[in-house]
Amino acid sequence: MNFSTDSDSTVYVGNIDPRITKDQLYELFIQINPVLRIKYPKDKVLQTYQGYAFIEFYNKEDAEYVIQIMNNTVKLYDRLIKVRQVTNSVGTANLSSNNSKDIALPIAKLFVKNLADSIDIDQLAKIFGKFGKTISKPEIFHLSNGKLKCACVYFEDFEKADLAIKSLNNQLVANSRITIDYAFKENGKASTKYGNEVDRLLNKEALKHGMLK
């Protein structure tokens, strides 16, 4: 299937620092909506990126939402990236201000393993809340046919999540030794965890612009 640069599901991304790789662009934008494909041209002689890219999403609504969230809000290596919709007409598409879709911004998602049976959601929230603000209540679930109690915890920023990992990993909580690490991404590459360089850059910008409140 050919890449389409005039589709209403494709966005143009400009003012990209040449140090940003194609993989980093993917990691950045997939946190907002699933990415179908990326066209990121290189100079044929120098083999360096030319500072712009076309990113195609699965539908028009996803593309519009990315523009709404990303345009003039994210700095990468001190460059404020520009994101606009690619259309056959001049100008950008009109965006709805009543989009009810949940924002998939780069919060710090932790995976907690081997919790004691006595630990509930409120207790877990209290334990992790000592290290910083969390976005929502923890989610508790069971693995290994119900034998292994686990949870996901969502911090507002990575510094607080780093501190929680450093302080609690391999520690006894309610007589059970827990392990904590960044969770794997559900919609990214199978081996990719939260907390990489792009996650942290985007998280700082989101906090700066009040997008996580």
Rank of each mutant, 00 (worst) to 15 (best):
E64S: 05
T87F: 07
A206G: 09
L36M: 12
N15T: 08
A151C: 11
M70C: 10
P106H: 02
Q50P: 13
L25G: 10
K126N: 06
D23Q: 03
K166A: 08
L124T: 03
A206M: 10
K213W: 00
L80E: 15
S96A: 08
P18W: 13
I127T: 08
C150V: 07
N88M: 15
K75I: 04
D117T: 14
N145I: 03
L148D: 14
K149N: 05
K130Y: 08
N71H: 03
T10V: 07
K137C: 14
N196Q: 04
S136W: 13
K185P: 05
K208A: 07
K213S: 11
D8N: 13
V198T: 11
K101E: 07
F155H: 12
K185A: 09
N170W: 07
K166G: 00
Y49H: 08
I165T: 02
L115R: 02
F141M: 08
N196M: 01
V45R: 15
A108V: 00
A108F: 05
T134M: 02
C150F: 07
V74L: 15
A63G: 00
F128M: 03
L36W: 15
K113T: 06
N2P: 15
N33Y: 11
M70L: 02
F155R: 06
G14H: 02
S144K: 10
Q24T: 09
I20G: 07
L76N: 06
I16A: 01
D157F: 11
H209N: 12
F155Q: 13
L76S: 01
G146V: 13
V83N: 06
T48I: 12
Q123K: 12
F184T: 02
